[in-house]
Simulated scan of single mutants.
Amino acid sequence: MAEDQGDIAVDIDHVTKRYGDFTALADVSLAIRSNEFFTLLGPSGCGKTTLLRCIAGFEDITLGAIRLYGDNIVDLPPNKRPVNTVFQQYALFPHMDVTRNVMFGLLRLGQSEAAARKRAGEVLDLVQLTQFADRLPAQLSGGQQQRVALARALAPNPKVLLLDEPLSALDLKLRQAVRLELQQIQQETGITFIFVTHDQEEALTMSDRIAVISDGRLQQIGTARDIYEEPDNKFVADFIGETNLIDVTVAGIDNGQATCTLPGGNHFTCPAAQGAHSGRGHLSVRPERVSLSDPAQGLLTGTVSRLIYLGTDMHVDITLTDGEVVTARVQNSAGTRIPAMGETIGLNFEAGAARLLID
């Protein structure tokens, strides 16, 4: 069913961006819903920040259209677009206290001193920085500076907030805490957030939906569960978390189900991604969905070649007869038997866990 255009905040319509002979974005189309926390995810250099800058107006597009609530904004300069951006570097004014930093943009927009100060107080309360209102940026931690930059961007009530890897400068523990704060602020304000990151965990934990991008091309859009459980292709499966990619021979596909021959000769039926075909293929199975068994009862059989202790989990690498390595993740709980190095072991997949992918 077609999506109600009234629910679309940002419509990226066949956008291409070229720098000379280099194509940074290749015919990208996606629709970001109003009040959504939407993430652009991909490795460094994939085009996600370029797309964000095109939305902001800092980059011109070569082809296509960008619509904000139905209006094409490609010809509008950045200062005329009802969007704000939080960058990796927060670019706070070092000589201004927190309140004046937040007020700066409001005063530039023509608000009175009193109105700007009142609004600054509201957003500082929202990001829990009221007690730091009189401090200079140098007197704040990295996480606090990040929240000042966020407050400054939120102050004018933008229709869309663009966030370009704003957590990358923070340490791991602080990043995890700020993720939750960002999610809560987005829900409280109802502003559409478009978040850029290369961190899969950030994307999975924060987003309503995720767009995975590689080499300037859109690979897949979906919820965190969609992307993780039902990847469309090898890149998405391999980029999002860990997965086993097992070479199989595909006899045929009927009504979305593929009949495959596994290494060792056993036959197996599983869901197939759209576009999958007969011949050589790749089966994707997450390590936590692989179970260990007696060799005689396994879909696959191999030899334990490596054991990695990770606290709650044990990663068990099993080398198959054809030399492929399959990883199983086993919980370190009471009663769980961990196989020994060199032991011959059987492998099975949880129901619905395996998926035939396209390249």
Rank of each mutant, 00 (worst) to 15 (best):
T319H: 07
G105Q: 00
S278E: 13
V316K: 07
T50Y: 00
R67K: 15
G143L: 04
Q200L: 12
A149E: 00
D11G: 09
G311N: 10
I12T: 02
P43A: 01
I8K: 10
F239M: 06
T197M: 05
Q186A: 05
L163A: 06
A31K: 15
R135E: 07
L300F: 03
H95V: 10
T39S: 13
T327S: 04
I345F: 05
E3D: 07
T301W: 00
R33H: 11
S278R: 15
F132Y: 13
I194P: 00
I12A: 03
S333I: 14
H95Y: 07
E324P: 10
G265P: 01
S112H: 12
E113V: 13
F349Q: 04
D125E: 14
H277P: 08
A276N: 03
I318E: 04
D21M: 15
I221S: 01
H315M: 15
F195V: 07
F195K: 04
S333V: 12
G264S: 01
F38K: 08
R117F: 04
V285H: 08
A276L: 05
T197W: 10
D11S: 13
A169G: 12
Y69K: 14
N157E: 15
R135P: 08
V326A: 09
Q274C: 12
D215T: 09
L154R: 12
N332W: 04
R117I: 02
S29P: 05
I221A: 00
A56K: 04
N79F: 13
R33A: 12
V316D: 06
F87A: 10
L300A: 04
V83E: 05
Q88C: 08
V290E: 07
A169R: 14
P158W: 01
A169M: 09
E188N: 15
S293K: 03
R209P: 02
I358F: 07
G264V: 09
N72P: 08
H14S: 13
R100M: 15
I55W: 03
V123P: 03
D164F: 11
A276W: 01
P137Q: 04
S112E: 01
T243K: 07
I253R: 05
G335I: 08
F132K: 14
G279V: 14
H282Y: 14
G279Y: 10
Q183L: 13
D232F: 14
V74C: 05
S214N: 15
T16W: 09
L136R: 15
A133R: 10
P295Q: 05
I358G: 02
E113G: 13
M1H: 10
V236E: 08
Q89F: 09
R225A: 13
Q186G: 03
A258S: 00
R81K: 03
D208T: 15
I240D: 01
G57E: 06
T49P: 05
T205P: 01
V10A: 05
G252Y: 07
D215E: 13
R135N: 07
G64C: 06
R100F: 11
G190E: 03
I213P: 07
L161D: 11
L182I: 03
D75V: 09
P263T: 04
